[in-house]
Simulated assay, not measured.
Amino acid sequence: MSIKKHIPNIITCANLLSGVLAIVYTLQERSLECAAWCIVLAAVFDFFDGLVARALGVTSPIGKDLDSLADVVSFGVAPALLVYQGLSTLSGGSMLAYGVFILPAFAALRLAKFNHDERQTMSFLGLPVPSNALFWIGASFALESIQYTIGSQLTLITYLVLAVLFSALMVSDLPMFSFKLKKAPLKALWRQILLVIIAIAAILTRGWFGCSLTIIAYVFLSLLPVKEE
């Protein structure tokens, strides 16, 4: 039996384990930064499992389902818990902080929708769950500074509104570009190139919050009309 057909699933399991570690770090409050890095690592594994599966010609329905299960944990539960911990501390244990757990529910709904949508082969409809996770990583590290600016109660309300907004984005039909490799002239990839430049600049200047700024830029760049070649 060839081992190559198991390689993508091993990478997907690494994604899942990274998400689990992020949850453990968050619950134990050992290092929220380590939790954030685990989610980023999960995103790296998530990018490569599909790439490797296509390169080896070993894509399968089981691999697709496993990928979705891993993504719910790594990009739904883990970032929501990271934000919840911050909001709960900020609000003195307010029950409203539980509202951010709408995110993993809609992440699961988005992934189930994606698995049965044949229109999303080279691009996306709706915000991908890894992008959602990256936004909330940055948002979790911005909590303290936002609190000092607008106050605890308004910060909590703002984050709950954002949770509803990003949940809607995940299940929307908003066309969004991807980084999936395809044969295209360089000028046709201007949005991808610009987003990479924005990401580097944002992260270098704003740290973790740069992740949130990058995803906001991603959404706005996806809204721009693209001239068909």
Rank of each mutant, 00 (worst) to 15 (best):
I198Y: 05
S178M: 02
A217H: 12
P185V: 01
L174W: 12
L154S: 07
N9W: 09
T205E: 09
F75E: 08
L165P: 09
L82Q: 11
Q147E: 08
Y148R: 10
D49G: 01
A188E: 15
N9V: 11
F106K: 08
I216V: 10
G86A: 10
A105F: 15
I10W: 12
D65Q: 13
H6F: 15
K4A: 13
I193A: 05
S178I: 03
P61F: 01
K182P: 13
D71A: 12
A35D: 10
L81Y: 05
S60V: 04
T158D: 03
L186M: 12
W190E: 07
G92V: 02
S152E: 13
L156P: 08
L81G: 05
L162I: 04
M176W: 00
Y159E: 00
I146L: 08
F48G: 05
S91E: 07
D46Y: 08
A80Y: 00
A201C: 11
E33F: 06
T155F: 04
A112D: 00
L162F: 07
A142R: 05
L27R: 11
I200Y: 03
V129A: 06
A112V: 03
R30E: 14
T121L: 10
G126C: 06
I197W: 02
F48I: 04
A133M: 00
G126K: 08
A168Y: 13
W37T: 10
V77W: 01
L156S: 09
P104K: 06
V226F: 01
T89V: 11
L111Q: 02
P8N: 15
L81M: 10
T205S: 08
S222N: 11
I215E: 13
W136H: 12
V196Y: 02
E29P: 04
L195Q: 01
V219A: 14
L125D: 06
L87S: 10
L186T: 09
F179L: 07
I157Q: 10
L32W: 07
V52C: 02
T155H: 07
S131E: 00
I137S: 00
L154H: 01
L221D: 00
L17P: 10
I200D: 04
T155Q: 09
I10E: 12
G50D: 09
L169Y: 08
